[in-house]
Design a protein around this nucleic acid. Structure first.
Lengths: 247, 247
DNA sequence: ACCTGAACACCGTTCAAGT
DNA sequence: ACCTGAACACCGTTCAAGT
């Protein structure tokens, strides 16, 4: 599971600055960037800060990544890669149904979104490797797997493409929303110990709801987190719909 | 439909730099920012560039917006505002069904996404005014309208909240995907006349599909644009599902 | 081979000063 | 009241130079 091949150390999760001496590779840089964004948010990610995080002088990074955009692309790629090299644990064999495969895939992507809510939005924003393909399953390999799994289970080409669209847009919608909610709580203060400087109207985040009676009445219910139940429900519905279309 | 109230001029759409002398207000700045991003993409939006665009010295903007983040927030707000002050043209009266209202709202949001595909992703990314509320209907007024319309049509509180979640996640997913596809074609070269400098692996955007036989076979079909038909279909399905839940 | 110092062009933002 | 010049701290990125 994404474990470092490193020199056998006890491998505490390493919360602080990881200036350990490891030879600095593209994978290590990308992994550090993901961890950094998980902690500090995307806006805080800077080539220079990431450099010092790695105990190195920022410009060194350019030996391994072509620039900031390439770094972001690498982060998405590394996150999505888990979806095919995952050790077959839950991976469905050729005998399993396409429903089982879509369930596995959906839960895999959801796990990514929940582990890295700050990074996940990049999946929707960054341009795909193939511009004519929609983002959410960013790896071409994953899309190929998706289509071939369905076609092998009796989908026509057209229906497989339609299923890909329906599935990916469902997944993107749900998970971006979920990630946005998770991401909100995570990066409250810019720095621990720094007073939130309420210089401007920006700060007024607790809006007054006097003009919105229903919002006030439903505030508690709206903020409840039924994310998992809602996700399962919507996924079931989608699979049912795809199944109906097959007949 | 979003027409300028301007001084009666022939009103060509004004493609170039709009350095006309108008007294510079928050609304004008925000509108200029939206137009700029539509033309050049979000990454190109800079306080300094927006300043010169408006024939003004960048720092002047800070009289009207609290900073870049506030500007982005203003852009989202201005785009979403169309959804309630729209001149009731298609706005449904109290006698109409909640289905008609949701249809109207969905098409309104979709129109925004299609007109401003480069700006639309901000709706999913920027933090909401109320952190416990999910983004896609960013205006609290719109959410209030949504809930009160449904409650007035016989939804219980719980069902109205569930409907809001299902509807907003559907809408966000579909429209982010659609906007991403539209946005891809729009900003191909950084500048007209500037050669795309293929300095690095970044440039290899036309991936070779030799290892992905299904992608190659379905490339044409995958890149077809059935956005409108798919949207209508999925919206119908969602409304059916909400209706089933009512019984 | 791998990292760094110094430099360049460009940011966001502040603030005293102009008109 | 509204805009500007100059300045500050910080970016991304390049490249000749160090080890």
């Amino acid at each position: 599971m994404g474990g470092e091949p490193g020199p056998g150390a006890g491998s505490t999760v390493d919360t602080g600055a990881t200036s350990d001496r490891a030879p600095l590779s593209r994978d290590r840089i990308v992994a550090a960037a993901i961890a950094f964004v998980d902690r500090k948010g995307l806006a805080a990610l800077t080539m220079r800060r990431l450099g010092t995080e790695l105990g190195v002088e920022a410009m060194s990074l350019y030996r391994y990544v072509a620039g900031r955009d390439d770094l972001l692309e690498g982060m998405v790629e590394q996150m999505v890669d888990r979806l095919h090299l995952d050790p077959g644990s839950e991976r469905t064999g050729p005998g399993d149904s396409w429903q089982a495969y879509l369930q596995w895939l959906a839960h895999g992507v959801r796990a990514i979104a929940r582990e890295h809510p700050q990074v996940f939005p990049l999946i929707a924003t960054r341009h795909p490797a193939a511009p004519w393909l929609r983002p959410p399953l960013r790896s071409l390999q994953v899309v190929e797997d998706f289509l071939s799994t369905l076609v092998a289970r009796g989908f026509t080409d057209d229906r497989a493409v339609a299923a890909y669209r329906a599935f990916s847009s469902f997944l993107l919608g749900h998970l971006l929303l979920e990630a946005a909610m998770l991401g909100t709580r995570e990066v409250p203060a810019v720095d621990p110990g720094e007073e939130t400087r309420s210089t401007a109207p920006t700060a007024g985040c607790d809006v007054d709801l006097r003009q919105f009676p229903l919002l006030r009445r439903l505030e508690d219910r709206l903020s409840e987190d039924h994310a998992t139940a809602e996700f399962e429900r919507a996924l079931e519905d989608l699979l049912d719909r795809l199944e109906r279309d097959l007949a």
